[in-house]
Design a protein around this nucleic acid. Structure first.
Lengths: 150, 150
DNA sequence: TTTAATCCCAAGCAAAATGCTAGGTATTTT
DNA sequence: AAAATACCTAGCATTTTGCTTGGGATTAAA
């Protein structure tokens, strides 16, 4: 039940872009430095996010990435689905391929995985990048502006 | 966010033992046949469950496995934790190793993973083997006793 | 007392996934 | 022209997965 680094790092990067939303294109190098990630590896992850329409890129000097939508319109679940594939603890409850389990209607253990899937989906689709930025701002105040962020 | 076959098969096997609870030791061979799993592979999984005190074994002919507790006292989460390790989408929210993330108190993305972890834990610890057997019996009636079970 | 059924144990192993790195090319601003 | 960026492809060591193989130990039943 682990997320790979793809989803983990991808959410970090998207959170970073959300923090700088409205500041024009953010070079990946700066994201990688702030979030302490390999720039080259991050490139591969963000390529998927770009193809999925979650970020836009500007090439050339002074270029970089921006969110393609407002932070409030990007859910963590959207990011995870791009980077990790469908949210499904086992393949037989993959909503994007409903016919993959031929004994589905008779399977009892399946009910468990459906509940797990729905609960994960609920959490991940219930949190937007705007929510995360808001939480960050609140935490900043509590911690009196002495903050690291990861 | 996938379960490995260990957790998947392990829950199937434990559900099978729950269905036969009170019938004396159930040989693994029959479990493997009913659940369509490799017997040898299942052996490895159930070895862990035995060491964790979830099943008891009886050696020799007419031997087999039984649940070590009543089905109502074994939660799916107990099985998953034995076979898959701690429930934590990323290592930094592993409850069994709280100090693994040194920047924990400042990390915003961490809040997301904690919510995911808690929601998964809630589902898995909210379902016992007795619940599953009960669901199965209900489904059997609805389907007029023509049932496969997996 | 033999035989069969069962649990138990250790090793091996191919295939896939993971988590990168390396080394470029294309594009744009300065 | 130079620098800064995005973009692309390949490679690759390590780990994990999902088993299989080949036994040995224990016990009930014939």
């Amino acid at each position: 039940m682990k997320l790979s680094t793809k989803g983990h790092y991808g959410v970090k990067a998207m959170f970073d872009l959300a923090q700088h939303y409205g500041e024009g294109p953010i070079p990946l190098k700066s994201v990688a430095e702030r979030q302490d990630l390999s720039e080259h590896y991050l490139e591969q992850l963000i390529a998927g996010l770009r193809k999925a329409g979650l970020v836009k890129s500007v090439r050339g000097a002074q270029g970089g990435y921006t969110l393609a939508k407002e932070p409030a319109d990007i859910r963590v679940g959207d990011i995870i689905r791009v980077l990790e594939g469908p949210i499904a603890p086992v393949d037989c409850v993959n909503q994007e391929d409903p016919d993959c389990c031929d004994k589905a209607e008779f399977c009892i253990t399946r009910g468990v995985w459906e509940k797990v899937r729905d609960s994960i989906t609920g959490v991940l689709d219930g949190i937007t990048l705007a929510d995360m930025v808001e939480d960050f701002e609140k935490a900043k105040q509590v911690n009196n502006f002495y903050m690291y962020y990861i």
